[in-house]
Amino acid sequence: MMNMPVSERSLGPAAGQGTGQPMVRNDNAQHELSVRVRDLNLWYGETQALKNIDIDVYQHNITALIGPSGCGKSTFLRCLNRMNDLIPGVSLQGLVEMDGRDVNEARMDEVALRRRVGMVFQKPNPFPKSIYDNIAYAPRMHDLVSRKVDVDELVERALRDAGLWEEVKDKLQEPGTSLSGGQQQRLCIARAIAVRPEVILMDEPSSALDPISTATIEDLMDKLKRQYTIITVTHNMQQAARVADYTAFFHLGELVEYNDTQTMFSNPATKKAEDYITGRYG
């Protein structure tokens, strides 16, 4: 199954289930392909956690992954930058394609992949370094910048893009852990965008934060999508409805419905999605 050329597979009707394309098009969204996933299956040991996932993710969009806990949405997210490699006992089949390459192929360097697919975690995890070094560290290692002025400029831009500059510009040398939770999370976003990835994965980025910080992060995501492709897992349906262009609903390891966000929340195509959205379970 693995690496089967996409063209050989029956893609079915032009749009809808099983093709990986959203059921209803969002005309405000862009539709250049960023990540293409076909027939993705994943096991933790004997337990299958993802079943036959097909999805196309488009550039400069926010794609939200929703579903009850344990439905596989975070697992799926971590397939996109191969963070699942770190978990022993995970086996995987299927295609995750980016820039014309299967990210799971043998000669793909997962470190290179993660350069292009950044990630923000549920709990803010700043490094035990100063605010400045939290951001400057990775670009320096990647040789994106070397001169002091360039580094300064890069740090400032990342912090500005993350909406944190005004709050921290006078205390750049303080440890990153001295910030509040919401600020720490924006620091982590700044850290992620400082290496200029193309895709940013966000794993429930605001679930550990207060409502005001959450609102700030949502505004930030909206701004960031002009430059980056954002895929976010959220347990909060209102958040998905507010920020996402497309929404994918996962249930028991399957992708049940992938749809334009507005349609998903007003007129879902599947019964399961409707039950979940209206609060019958979850």
């Binding site: 963070m83 993660r114 350069r115 950044g118 975690f121 490094f127 035990p128 990647h142 982590c188 992620a192």
Partner: peptide, 27 residues
């Protein structure tokens, strides 16, 4: 040292060695 620290570093495209040297050991 919390795993989230390592993941944060690896997710930035840093290698295993860099993560150990610059993130895990300082922590």
């Amino acid at each position: 040292v919390p795993d989230s620290m390592r993941q944060g570093s690896l997710a930035l495209g840093l290698t295993r060695g860099e993560t150990i040297r610059d993130v895990v050991l300082p922590a």
